[in-house]
Write a protein that binds this DNA or RNA. Structure first.
Lengths: 220, 220
DNA sequence: GTTGATTACCGAATAGTATTCGGTAATTAA
DNA sequence: TTAATTACCGAATACTATTCGGTAATCAAC
């Protein structure tokens, strides 16, 4: 009974926006530029999306979910729980904040500036947190679902921090030794002796830990 | 040889800005409002400060440093390392993000929007990180200075996350049990059994841990 | 005091933004 | 073919941080 919205146009807008956001960043890209790149009039963007923020969200959400899918899929191939944990941490704190010229940063930007005034729901964040909790549960022993959820929240907050600060550090991401240190702390607690603990615990240490754990499990 | 800037005016600007930023937030406060509240012309703000961001920084920096001073001063009065660690974490992840109607959030906002284009230096962040490393070094055993520094970085990133998300969660701050869980993990590693570990470890557990540690120290 | 230079101070302009308005025309169902 | 709907667009709107040009307060030197 009337003209209908065209998916090609919607997609053209998203593609243009994605390219520009990646290259110049969210706040240095204006609606006119997106419209020009998508070959439509600026006003027409508002037929397809309610706001600039909604355009970003429409890009960011599937983008982030895809990153998580890839992470999730890669984990079963890693036998060692420690290596799995490292994979999770390095993906969240190192890879994702840095990839695509710090694309995740755009989301932090948008969140910070416009999210408060409505239109934003924590749905995406909560879903991601839930998934992350599942992944952590598979690496860090005896957390329990509730504990995994708490830890996931903390890890995600740090992720926001790394994404937010990506450009401020001149594109620096989380250092490798920081990741290994943290992973080992998560698994084993504070180091026994700073100067002695290698990045990867020796077999003797590891087995002693395992014995402790087993004994504790029985006696505890 | 000429008229000089007046500290009263500078202070009036800062006071006005502080009040407005706290009440309405950084991006919902405009220069005209600040000027009106400070009883000067908008253009005159630019005699005293280079930009709106610089006004915020001039408020935020001493504000944050003061919070850290208070935290630092309170720690020696706490005997238990675990309680000290909890104090640090709850201050950073719970109190500071929530205080003054989420004032720290303004800084995240400003960072996200304008910091990239120069004028920003990581000086403040690095200084804070250094201090935090010192505090953590006093709670978490055997970290070493370098390790403490890495951990401090992570904790600060999560702080940014909590501050950034403060308003999005409807003013929620980091839950108490999340703090205790994380503190215990930092000190002892992954829980022995999720359902059994109390928030505060029993004396028997604690002493067993202590023995383990002592033995490890000798044999390790 | 008086003078002369400096610069705080201000009203009005500027440049830039996301978003909306009003009209036109393409599309679709009948 | 018609009639209703609505995608689409050019031009306006409302809002912003920041700057411009002029005025006058202030201070040092004499």
């Amino acid at each position: 009974m009337a003209q209908t919205k065209k998916i090609e146009i919607r997609q053209a807008i998203l593609d243009a926006a994605y390219e520009l956001f990646s290259k110049r960043g969210y706040s240095d890209t204006n609606i006119t530029e997106i419209a020009r790149a998508a070959k439509v009039a600026p006003a027409n963007l508002y037929v397809y999306f309610r706001s600039k923020l909604e355009i970003l969200l429409s890009i960011y959400e599937p983008w982030l979910v895809k990153r998580f899918d890839e992470l999730e899929k890669s984990l079963p191939r890693i036998a060692s729980p420690r290596q799995r944990l490292l994979k999770i941490l390095s993906t969240l704190w190192r890879d994702i904040p840095a990839v695509e010229n710090g694309f995740a940063n755009n989301w932090m930007r948008a969140l910070a500036t416009t999210a408060a005034r409505e239109g934003y729901s924590p749905r995406l964040r909560l879903a991601i947190e839930e998934r992350l909790a599942g992944l952590l549960d598979g690496c860090v022993p005896n957390l329990g679902r509730a504990g995994a959820r708490e830890l996931a929240n903390i890890v995600l907050m740090a992720f926001d921090g790394y994404a937010l600060n990506f450009h401020l550090n001149g594109g620096a991401s989380c250092a490798r030794r920081r990741l290994t240190l943290f992973a080992d702390i998560l698994l084993n607690g504070a180091p026994l002796a700073a100067s002695r603990r290698p990045t990867k615990p020796s077999r003797r240490q590891a087995s002693r830990r395992a014995v402790e754990r087993a004994v504790a499990h029985v006696t505890g």
